[in-house]
Design a protein around this nucleic acid. Structure first.
Length: 228
DNA sequence: GCCCAGGGGGCTC
DNA sequence: GAGCCCCATGGG
């Protein structure tokens, strides 16, 4: 059973929310990365940090010619740490990038195409076994770099849908993901855009110092009538 | 100057 | 398995 706050929620309700967000924000063209590897690197670096800082770090990596699997695998740790300083916990982030690249080199001969040739369920388990890859990072990699049909949820998803009375504040990652995936049609484009739109809304109303409910495209349907 | 943050690991109980 | 602390910077 879903961990939501008792209010029924149909596919139509979720699609109505999606359409409202899409009308307001337009297509988000996610993920903001030029290559599959850039998406993977971004997914790891964006943990607990805003995208602006990730862009600085990816710029540093590009500037040093490090944005390829072999280079990231071979570069000295200290140099990698220096490049990702803007992304918070830079020593941890460098370790995580090294762990992922080590796995890619050892298991897939550095080929992301080979990795993304694996079935979704087993690849997800495999990714979760790599140091530094938790559920959200694994699913971001699978959806946005691998084009697998898996719905990515995050803290914004919980905050926004709890505010709407559709999810419990205490919903776990798995419960939130189940909530969406059992209601929505399995569709990579829809999953891609939906998460990106939740992010856009989250950035607008969850991070604002003094959020105004009237600026939220969902305000008319917000039962709490309070800022998200 | 203070507070908090889009996540994950590791430890304790 | 839940709860807590750690990582360590930058922006509001």
């Amino acid at each position: 059973m879903d961990n939501y706050s008792g209010k029924t929620c149909s596919r139509d309700t979720l699609m109505h929310i999606f359409n409202s967000l899409y009308s307001h924000f337009g297509p988000r063209h996610w993920w903001p990365g030029e290559t599959q590897l850039e998406v993977v690197v971004g997914a790891i670096l964006t943990q607990s940090v805003s995208w602006r800082n990730v862009e600085k770090a990816i710029g540093n990596l590009k500037g040093k010619g490090l944005l390829c699997v072999r280079a990231l695998h071979d570069v000295p740790m200290a140099e990698l740490e220096q490049a990702v300083v803007p992304t918070l916990y830079f020593r941890m982030k460098a370790r995580k990038l090294k762990a992922f690249m080590g796995h890619l080199v050892n298991v897939y001969d550095a080929s992301l195409d080979s990795m993304f040739g694996q079935p979704l369920a087993s690849l997800r388990q495999e990714l979760l076994s790599i140091y530094g890859i938790g559920p959200e990072t694994a699913d971001s990699i699978l959806l946005y770099a691998g084009n697998y049909p898996i719905f990515v949820v995050d803290a914004y998803t919980r905050r926004i849908f709890a505010r709407l009375g559709l999810l419990a504040e205490t919903a776990t990652y798995q419960e939130m993901q189940h909530f969406f995936m059992t209601r929505l049609t399995e569709d990579v484009e829809l999953f891609n855009e939906y998460h990106a739109l939740i992010d856009a809304l989250g950035n607008r109303v969850c991070l604002a110092r003094k959020p105004k409910c009237s600026e939220c495209p969902l305000s008319a349907g917000c039962p709490s009538r309070q800022p998200c």
